[in-house]
Design a protein around this nucleic acid. Sequence first.
RNA 1: GCCGAGGUGGCGAAACUGGUAGACGCGCCAGACUCAAAAUCUGGUGGUGGCAACACCGUGCCGGUUCGAGUCCGGCCCUCGGUACCA
Length: 876
Amino acid sequence: MADGEPLQYAAMAEHSYDPQSVELRAQAWWRDNQSFRATEDAGRQKYYCLSMFPYPSGKLHMGHVRNYTIGDVISRYQRMLGRNVLQPMGWDAFGLPAENAAIQNRVPPAKWTYENIDVMRGQLKRLGYAYDWDREVTTCSPEYYRWEQWFFTRLFRKGLAYKKNAVVNWDPVDQTVLANEQVIDGRGWRSGAVVERREIPQWFLKITDYAQELLDSLDQLTGWPEAVKTMQRNWIGRSQGVEIVFPVADGGESLKVYTTRPDTIFGVTFMAVAAEHPMVAPVAERDPEVARFVEECRQGAITEADIETMEKKGLPLGLEAVNPLNGERIPIWVGNFVLMSYGTGAVMGVPGHDQRDWEFARRFGLPVAPVVRPADGSDPGIDQAAYEDKGVLYNSGEFDDLEFQEAFDAIAERLERDDRGERRVNFRLRDWGVSRQRYWGCPIPIINCPVCGPVPVPDDQLPVVFPEVTQLEAGLDRARLTESFMRTTCPECGGPAERETDTFDTFVESSWYFARYTSPGCETGMVDGRADHWLPVDQYIGGIEHAVLHLLYARFFHKLMRDEGLIHSDEPFTRLLTQGMVLNEIFYRKSADGRIQYFNPAEVEVRADEKGARTAVLASDGGPVESAGIGTMSKSKNNGVDPQRLIDRYGADTVRLFMMFASPPEQTLDWNDDAVAGSFRYLRRLWSLVQNHADLIANAPESPGGKDLDPELQAIRTTTHDILDRVCRDYERHQFNTVVAACMELTNLLEKHDWQAGGESGASVLREAVTILLKVLAPVVPHICHVLWERLAFQGGLLDAAWPEVDRQALVRESVVMVVQVNGKRRAEIEVPSGAADDGVREAALANPRVQHHVQGKSVRKCIVVPDKLVNLVVG
RNA sequence: GCCGAGGUGGCGAAACUGGUAGACGCGCCAGACUCAAAAUCUGGUGGUGGCAACACCGUGCCGGUUCGAGUCCGGCCCUCGGUACCA
């Protein structure tokens, strides 16, 4: 069949499965009954199920479909368990791609964004997600960000927002600040110019004030994956160490460093400072080599990954620090791996006991001095690598023979007594820089007065809204902020002043949207009393890529809102499911001037020759394209798969089913749509099974009784309840792929039986099984199940049907098949009464001729029995 | 570099607390139906050897613990996510 051609079974037979009409019918029913409107109801247990809202980049991609299907399955499952479910949806609508589209296509960012939202909202509705659309939130609308501005002015007054200098990527050609993503190999993506580091004043939020609480309350998040909590703990990075002051010889200003290993202080053989350190500038003035080095450090990217992996370079400044404990003189170097914005902008180098310092010292011929050795007094062996273990001190004067903690305390006390340092708890976490030099973002509500300094915009003048622009130009993003917008008067002194033109990081909007959903239409504040009804979110679902930044910022904002008295819980998300990324291959071409153009895998043909070597060509022109491996589906890499094609061809249920069946939710998924047809085939089989027996089922007794069934029907009942038992367990642990597999198993079983000849008891066994099947499949494929439920003339909507219960008595079997191993190798199977005693099992196993063959002539030394499962005879 | 996760048939995967490796599905092969094809249905399908019964091998690599290891421990390789201005 040609790709994209719609299936035409509907035209072929009246009763064949036509997803488009089935889905239209189910969705109309939900709409007419306002099924998903959530109301605060004190009488029912609430369940707030939230999926991370999308950035409206154009169309849904498979990552969205995966995310939102998981959320919808959980919402519908919880609803059938009787909970009052709230499931909202909205748009993370500010961001860089809108500006890029504006520049490239000369379309205003607002128009581009709202058009994308309309397309994507339509797609979400087509997929049948059970959202309460009355609560929709769009972060780029002034009604939303007004309250963000309001909140920021409160934080400013509390001293939790402040301004300081920070480094940005500066494109000297386009005269603009670049995001890290826009810097490729140290060059601006559009101009190709070498990017410079530039310090500019920026707004920060004091997340470090909450570092300890953000760390401590992770322990209470028992519904979060350990991996995410570990990443957040490491990110916050609490450490106990000592801040040490090294005087600089010949009267220079002293050098402050932080270390968690003060026990190695006698092994310091160099100091390294950042190029931007105040100590460096005077040296650069007289030493051209240093000046050149500083200039070199000013270029290139600013990400931690770049800095940590680049070649470590350094240059001696000709200055010396003095070791505060032994008076030794230590050369001070400037190093490209030390950043002014991290810590104090200076580090002490201990090559004997730090691998990075060891490599630096080796490279530049600096001495390596061992001062810590293993407890047994053996040589630490620093010729090949640094000795980083904690051990016992030597070569350390009066501190010799102390082990780590004793040495730490003794040295810290000595430094404190001499006023040369102090013990400190340090966090790796840095304050959150929220300033962005962009147009398409929430304006920071501050007025800069030459007399009063930064002054918050008064509440009655909020929201601050930028003038609309019809187009943006690269490098001139903020020039559209007209004179009349910037010119204003100071709210404090009434004198002339200028408006702040920076906007917020888009992570600010996504740090409180979950709270806004609880209070739609609220015009008196960020949220109202309804927030405490719904919060915290019971289940949050989103990509693992948000494990640290978004999820940490949202936790931070929740605590800020709590401390403002707006809400009364400590954490925003009780349970967290981190969905694995959907990956796809990335294809590109590099043009002569170094620019990269990406091609969607749908436009690329991959061929393999006889030797298995792959070549990829663009279908349209037959020319070769390069593969950049596989990566997360993204707009920027143009490797997304458009789910619309699959919806048009197979319907929403097939897409939902396939997504859930393809792999467990937390696992990375390499996209391959070859198997989607199999999910459609399954739904068609389900449809036929129910349709072919609909009247039989509708007229059958509800309960199959249980006692007088013939063995074959009894076996079907046992399997049905066994499968239900597994399905319940798998829903609870969110492993939906095996839920689907179990349903397929049950369907296969039911298809094989001749029900028309089975009489009334057979019909009731079928009725029970089909009822269970439709109920447990409903969260995954709600449309087809809804319509089949109607066909069976069952009372009430399937949506609110009670979740089926496992009949424990039906699970009891009279005999079981056990595996017999000899010396750990599987040799036979035996059938024994279930619950048989160990001795009986052993005898039955030894009686088996195949077992005898392997035991022959040897004595049984040991016999291990796992009841009802396995017996292992150890012979020799 | 650092932090986190993953690696099982041709492919997506399953295996609950250390107990039958490969459920379920895709693909492929064979058969039925058909003038033929598609669709559908039935059966087979980890590898090697063997007519077969069956035997041996097999969960990224090397080693260990155990009656028994995909699962636990030590070391390594590769892939993916994050790395503070992509969202």
